[in-house]
């Protein structure tokens, strides 16, 4: 029967599009890669304002337990979300940070951390709003959990009609940034856009 799914949490400020990112990742895996993905989110007062999150479980088999309990991948787009959610992260998990918005503290040694100036990249594209899609591209490249092709399809299928081009451009920027980071030695302290995290 089912293996333990990969647990992903995408977090940030309300309005940054953390839910859409979760939907895109889940949809890419479940619909376009033909596997299994369950997305949940916190609702209510706690879901508004400062720190909010969406949670995605990815698996090759049917997912039974619906919630993320110990994320393997944590995407963080605000300092408060970092403070709130980083203690949940698996010790050997992967942390993806928005470089200008999050300054992490000391991290467990086995943790892999990567960061990207996603806001700046989004602004260069002309819309700060596509920050979440830049992060989604970065996530796709760095984690390798889902095929880039599936995520591209999911982006086009999920964003408001008429904004597909802009959002796909945002995805590519984030994706390329992540790929480049990996080929040039992930997480190395000296590289631009990464932090001395070990």
């Amino acid at each position: 029967m089912s293996e333990r799914p990969t647990e992903i949490k995408i977090s940030g400020l309300g309005g940054q599009g953390v839910i859409l990112s979760g939907i895109i990742i889940g949809k890419a895996h479940a619909i376009f890669d033909g596997r299994h993905a369950t997305m949940t989110q916190a609702f209510g007062p706690e879901a508004r304002g400062s720190a909010c999150s969406s949670q995605v479980l990815l698996s090759d088999s049917r997912i039974l337990y619906p919630y993320v309990t110990r994320p393997d991948v944590l995407v963080v787009m605000s300092q408060e979300a970092y403070t709130r959610f980083s203690p949940e992260l698996n010790d050997d998990g992967t942390l993806l940070l928005e470089a200008d918005l999050v300054k992490p503290g000391p991290l467990p040694p086995r943790l892999k951390a990567y960061s990207i100036p996603a806001t700046r990249i989004a602004e260069e594209l002309g819309r700060k709003l596509v920050l979440n899609i830049v992060m989604t591209g970065f996530f796709t490249a760095v984690t390798g959990l889902i095929s880039g092709e599936a995520v591209r399809k999911a982006v086009a299928d999920s964003v408001p009609p008429g904004t597909e081009k802009l959002n796909l451009a945002a995805f590519e920027k984030g994706f390329a940034y992540g790929k480049q980071l990996l080929t040039s030695g992930a997480g190395a302290p000296s590289l631009p856009g990464t932090y001395p995290l070990r």
Binding site: G26, A30, A37, M39, T40, Q41
Partner: peptide
């Protein structure tokens, strides 16, 4: 229930 209602899947 809320979990099923708010859970997104294929």
């Amino acid at each position: 229930d809320e979990c099923v209602g708010h859970m997104t899947e294929k």
